[in-house]
């Protein structure tokens, strides 16, 4: 029995093969492959228009798949969307709470769409409102809540059916740092309860904190995949020295340093495995200000997706 159970636990919750979405002549998702293991947090990191939302919408059966295979809980999305959604919690990119209902009614009415109700659900609503710290605002209308509270209510709403998989499209975009930390705490808690999380984000910090595995996506393609640590190891040098100063001095430095260089405005980013020599040089030049830090996900992201502006 034991080996079978272990194998069961390793079967991916979500599997995508050559998944493609075509909007007219525009290919928003271009033949991507990925597997999401149970109990893990899987992240899609990508700039605006990368195809993150489109991928999630396909996964939930909210937009037809143009081609490729997509299975969730072992079920083909095209034919079992309702069954899949019954076992999933969805947090959309923009909140769509029901303005006609209070906080608690929002949860109760949403539960009714799953065919759920009765004393058990009333108790679950109480628990969920405590979980997202909205117990005291239960009679308020969504319009009277702050952005962070609305987001928390949306999260509570997505948990009303006790989902195995929680899909979050940019859970903290537009929130202040406090609100963001509260949500990160809640999501970490969900993960520790064994739920599988699938999220999209623009925030490196969010991806680094929450995700066990990430894909970096751009123009509908997956550019890299791995744990945040793997991605940093594989795609950039260990150290970054960011130097600010006049163009000429910077250029001269660049020629000598031997680092891999990237310039943005009047900042120069020097990527290297061996930062000591450059730091020595920089200490003598008082016209230049510099910061030395370990390389992070943002460096990987910018390296893979480029530094030019989107939109």
């Amino acid at each position: 029995m034991q080996p079978a159970a272990i194998q069961q636990a390793d079967t991916p919750i979500v599997t995508a093969r050559k998944l493609t979405k075509q909007f007219g002549s525009y290919r928003a998702v271009d033949g991507i492959d990925f597997d999401i293991a149970p109990g893990k947090c899987f992240g899609f990191l990508g700039p605006n228009g990368a195809g993150k939302t489109t991928t999630l919408r396909m996964a939930m059966g909210l937009t037809p798949v143009s081609s490729g295979e997509l299975t969730i809980f072992g079920l083909a999305v095209q034919r079992h969307a309702a069954e899949i959604r019954a076992r999933t919690g969805i947090i959309p990119q923009a909140d769509n709470l029901d303005p006609d209902f209070s906080v608690e009614e929002n949860l109760a009415v949403y539960a009714s769409f799953f065919g759920l109700g009765g004393p058990e659900i009333d108790a679950r609503i109480d628990t969920l409102l405590d979980f997202v710290a909205l117990g005291e605002r239960r009679k308020a209308k969504p319009d009277a809540l702050s952005g962070g509270m609305q987001r928390r209510l949306t999260i509570a709403r997505a948990l009303i059916n006790e989902p195995e998989l929680v899909v979050l499209d940019e859970p903290t975009t537009g929130l202040d740092p406090q609100a963001r930390h509260v949500i990160w705490g809640r999501l970490t808690e969900l993960k520790s309860r064994g739920k599988t999380l699938l999220l999209t984000t623009h925030y490196m910090e969010e991806a680094e904190r929450l995700c066990d595995e990430l894909v970096i996506m751009d123009h509908g393609r997956i550019l890299a995949q791995g744990s945040p640590r793997d991605l940093i190891e594989q795609h950039v040098e260990t150290d970054v020295i960011e130097v600010r100063g006049e163009g000429d001095t910077l250029r001269e430095l660049a020629r000598q340093s031997g680092c891999r260089l990237e310039q943005m405005g009047n900042s120069l980013y020097c990527y290297t495995q061996n930062p000591a020599p450059l730091i020595e040089q920089l200490k003598d030049r008082h016209a230049l200000r510099f910061v030395h830090r370990p390389a992070g996900l943002e460096d990987v992201f910018l390296r893979l997706t480029g530094r030019e502006l989107r939109d």
């Binding site: 939930m60 909210l62 969307a81 309702a82 069954e83 959604r85 019954a86 969805i90 959309p92 923009a94 769509n96 709470l97 029901d98 303005p99 949403y110 769409f113 799953f114 065919g115 997505a158 059916n161």
Partner: peptide
């Protein structure tokens, strides 16, 4: 404007 249907479509309803 209210996106009520978008919310409903995230449930098993169609």
């Amino acid at each position: 404007p209210q996106k009520t249907y978008e919310a409903i479509l995230a449930t098993p309803l169609d």
